[in-house]
């Protein structure tokens, strides 16, 4: 597995760079080179590193390790065809790490980010719709069963499109510079990551690169099916570029609007899933 995780980290960082590049080009800026995030991570890893006086030391360090660990686990869950419920559990743990990241630093900006992280728990609600919808359609929550189902019946992206939208919203809410990225809004500096600098920030970049890779791969596996690795990467890239377009065109919402919009989307999907369940 480690032989796959290391390339996944680099590809995830490259995806972050492509994300920034696409947003910049749409906004009429040259933007950074696509490998910028790889350099960024290396740069942070060489920067002077210490623990702020105001930080809760064990939590401040431990939360970075936990962030990397949970997305390493998620990588295995997705590529071994594991349960969607476990992926959901990883999402919940990620929410806790987002919160802990902000609280551990002692910085007011970090704490604001942490509070917004709790408020934006609504971003996880469309995942309920995804899980419930996929179960109603395929009769299983195992990713391996879902990919087999698609080999017989065709991609879920076509005949369960609203469910794909739900997961798309979840992934969008986890992207940098997205309309739902209220926990790292510029008015609170870098939000919950403000006080994590140097090696700690480099570790977070590794965790978030893995997160992006895992989420894009999960979407492709769940809604298009199992593909050869090069087509899988191509599909993930296309998905990423579409997300970048949304991020470039949509301003960051206020915390209240972000929560309201995600709740409304989930409500619409709940009606769709009930319709699917009743009508068969």
């Amino acid at each position: 597995m480690i032989t796959l995780i290391l390339p996944a980290v680099f590809i995830g960082l490259l995806f972050h760079g492509i994300h920034r590049k696409v947003i910049a080009r749409i906004q009429g800026r040259p933007g950074p080179p696509i490998w910028q995030e790889i350099l960024h991570t290396l740069k942070f890893s060489f920067k002077q590193t210490w623990i702020p006086k105001t930080a809760s030391m064990p939590m401040y360090v431990f939360i970075v390790a936990v962030s990397i660990a949970i997305w390493t686990g998620a990588f295995y869950i997705v590529f071994s065809g594991g349960s969607l419920l476990l992926l959901f559990a990883v999402f919940m743990l990620h929410k806790i790490t987002e919160h802990g990241l902000g609280l551990s630093s002692g910085s007011p900006y970090g704490k604001f980010g942490a509070i917004r992280s709790v408020m934006s728990a609504a971003s996880e609600i469309p995942l309920f719709a995804t899980i419930a919808g996929i179960y109603v359609v395929t009769g299983s929550l195992m990713i391996s069963d879902i990919t087999k189902y698609q080999e017989i019946h065709g991609p879920l992206l076509i005949h369960a499109f609203p469910i794909a939208i739900a997961l798309y919203i979840v992934i969008l809410s986890k992207m940098h510079y997205g309309p739902f990225s209220i926990i790292e809004a510029k008015e609170i500096v870098s939000g919950n990551r403000t006080e994590h600098f140097g090696v700690w920030r480099a570790g977070l970049e590794v965790a978030y690169a893995l997160k992006t890779f895992v989420l894009l791969a999960a979407f492709v596996l769940l809604f298009i099916g199992a593909l050869p690795w090069y087509l899988m990467l191509l599909a993930m890239l296309i998905l990423l570029v579409s997300l970048s377009f949304v991020c470039a065109f949509t301003p960051m919402l206020s915390p209240f609007d972000a929560v309201a919009m995600q709740t409304v989307i989930t409500g619409i999907l709940a009606v769709y899933i009930i319709f699917l369940g009743v009508m068969g």
């Binding site: 597995m1 480690i2 995780i5 890893s45 060489f46 920067k47 002077q48 590193t49 210490w50 360090v61 970075v64 390790a65 936990v66 962030s67 990397i68 660990a69 390493t72 686990g73 295995y76 140097g198 090696v199 480099a202 570790g203 590794v206």
Partner: peptide, 30 residues
């Protein structure tokens, strides 16, 4: 092996970064 990787990989990443970050010479306290 999965549990081992999940527990060990974060330690490896942070220790690697801290290793090449650490200085060989005495420096000022920041």
């Amino acid at each position: 092996p999965v549990i081992v990787v999940v527990l060990t990989f974060p330690v490896f990443v942070l220790a690697l970064f801290l290793w090449w970050n650490a200085s060989n010479i005495e420096g000022d306290f920041p």
